[in-house]
Each structure stands twice: as structure tokens, then as C-alpha cells.
């Protein structure tokens, strides 16, 4: 078994008004990797590139150690894919979809599919178009989970879903992860879904990977320094990842909280950063805005 379920090297892709340049990303097998970033940063582009829904201009993508174009069918057979806007033919129902899709996958289990439909509360005979947005997403998830995929590749799978169902979904994913050969890569803007659950976090911004780190590093080593404006002067510049100035002081995201603590001394609050802090400070903070 490969150490990395997914390896992306030097991938380029450009659209009018958007460029993804030289993207490198490694997703380790047996873990959950969360892809976060603002809208339009390239999350969907990255996921679509892996599925060959769009063609890359340069670079290499290996899934399960296999090139995703040379071994296209083989690779996709082991991926459970959820796209942020599920688009099945509008006039078909869940039952027919299962019958049409099942034979494509060796690991497909009709029984598991029916169980998931029941569990998710999806009406079996209702046409796709007549389902609510949330139900459409649940149907896409049921299909992705029904064929025992080795990699679950999901683009905003929790969009439009209530908190309760998001919890259920995480439980399903956690159960899958009990098998160390299974991996999950999902993009989301609901960072709380990933907070405790993701092993690795990848932040993407303007078509570039900003970092890819174990979540525990972010939580335990990084910090949000909060204080008066002059606190910035006391921090190590290379350590500061993002700054936001508010009416009552500044917040600075630092990559070494304990160093910052000794540098700043008393009178300064250093909090454990939430993923939301990281996302906001690194993509919407002052320094980022200034440099653009």
C-alpha cells in the first residue's frame, strides 16, 4: 500500500481570471485531510483535476500510486466522489440511480445503498429534481459511500446540510477510517467540521497551496496573539502568518505560540487558534490585503 493516497506535483490550470500555478500536495493514506480556503481559491478546481473532469495544463497527479489519466477507470473505481453541486439527471429517482450506477463498481452493495438511503431519509421513488438541496447532497453521499471506496473525495459535502446530519456524516467517515487503507479528502468552508476530525489541513488561496500541516500542529503550536497595536513590534516577523486590526487592538496569527509568549510577556493574550481564525487571518487579514 502506498504511503500517500494522492500526490499532486507541479500542476497548472488556468481559467480566465484564475490561475492555479505549481501546486504540490500530498494526502497521506489512512487519514482525513481537510481542504480549506475562501471561495474561488481553487478547492473545486483541485478536486475536479483529480477526477479528470477538467484537464491539467502541466504537472502530475497520482492516485493510489497510479497516474490518474493513464489509469483513469481504475483510479475512479476506488474513489467515492461527491461534487458540491450534485448533478444527476433530473427525472430519475434514487432507486434507478442505484441500479444504473451499481454495476460500475466492484465494491457496490445494493443492500448498503438501501440502508444509507433509509438512514439519510431519502425518498426512494422521488425524482432527483423534486428533492431538496440537502437531500440531493445526501443522495450523492449515499452513492459515494455505497461502493466501499478507498478514497472519499468530497467537495463541500456538508453544504446545505444541518448540524445534526453533519455529525452523522462525520460518524460515517470515522467508521470508514477505522480501516487504515481508507482515506478522506474533503473541502469545506465549515471549518468546525474539520476541527477535531481532520488529521491534516491544507489551506489554498488564489490557486496556491499556502500550507499543508497536521491539524494538531495548528492547534497546539500556533497561536492567536491579541493585544494593543504595539504588540506586533515584539513578534518575530517571519513567525507572523496573518494580522487583523480591529477597533480595540490587533490579532496576529503566529506559528510558534510559546516563542510569542516569551517575546510578548504579560498583558498579551495568546489563544489557541480555531481553524476559522487561521482561515480568516491568512486570507482576509491586513497583511494579506496589503500585499494585494
Amino acid at each position: 500500500m502506498e504511503d500517500n493516497v494522492l500526490e499532486i506535483r507541479g500542476v497548472h490550470k488556468s481559467y480566465p481570471g484564475f490561475t492555479m500555478r505549481d501546486v504540490d500536495l500530498v494526502v497521506p493514506t489512512g487519514h482525513v485531510t481537510g481542504l480549506i480556503g475562501p471561495n474561488g481559491a481553487g478547492k473545486t478546481t483541485l478536486v475536479k483535476l483529480v477526477m479528470n473532469l477538467i484537464t491539467r495544463e502541466a504537472g502530475e497527479i497520482d492516485v493510489f500510486g497510479l497516474d490518474n489519466l493513464l489509469h483513469e477507470a481504475e483510479v475512479k473505481a476506488r474513489i467515492g466522489f461527491v461534487y458540491d453541486e450534485p448533478n444527476f439527471p433530473h427525472d430519475v429517482n434514487a432507486r434507478d440511480l442505484g441500479r444504473a450506477i451499481g454495476p460500475f463498481y466492484r465494491g457496490w452493495s445494493g443492500e448498503r445503498y438501501r440502508r444509507l438511503l433509509g438512514e439519510f431519509g431519502i425518498p426512494v421513488r422521488k425524482r432527483f429534481k423534486a428533492l431538496s438541496k440537502g437531500m440531493q447532497m445526501k443522495l450523492a453521499l449515499a452513492i459515494a459511500l455505497a461502493h466501499d471506496a478507498d478514497l472519499l473525495l468530497m467537495d463541500e459535502p456538508t453544504a446545505g446540510l444541518d448540524l445534526e446530519f453533519r455529525r452523522d456524516l462525520l460518524e460515517h467517515l470515522a467508521a470508514i477510517l477505522e480501516d487504515e487503507r481508507k482515506s478522506v479528502l474533503f473541502s469545506t468552508h465549515v471549518t468546525s467540521d474539520l476541527e477535531r476530525f481532520a488529521d491534516f489541513i491544507t489551506l489554498i488561496r488564489d490557486g496556491e497551496i499556502v500550507f499543508s500541516l497536521p491539524t494538531s500542529d495548528l492547534r497546539d503550536a500556533w497561536g492567536v496573539v491579541k493585544g494593543a497595536a504595539d504588540v506586533l513590534a515584539r513578534l518575530d516577523a517571519p513567525d507572523v502568518r496573518g494580522v487583523r486590526t480591529g477597533p480595540h487592538g490587533v490579532e496576529a496569527l503566529v506559528a510558534n505560540a510559546s516563542l510569542a509568549r516569551t517575546k510578548c510577556g504579560p498583558g498579551v493574550v495568546i489563544d489557541r487558534p480555531s481553524l476559522d481564525d487561521v482561515l480568516v487571518l491568512m486570507t482576509r487579514g491586513d497583511s494579506y490585503v496589503e500585499s494585494h
Partner: peptide, 12 residues
């Protein structure tokens, strides 16, 4: 892995 599942935390 089963502890991670039960506690709903990451495997790492």
C-alpha cells in the same frame, strides 16, 4: 483507529 472513531477525533 477505533479509539479515534469512538472519540470522534483524528487518528493522528
Amino acid at each position: 483507529r477505533s479509539l479515534a472513531r469512538d472519540l470522534q477525533v483524528s487518528v493522528i
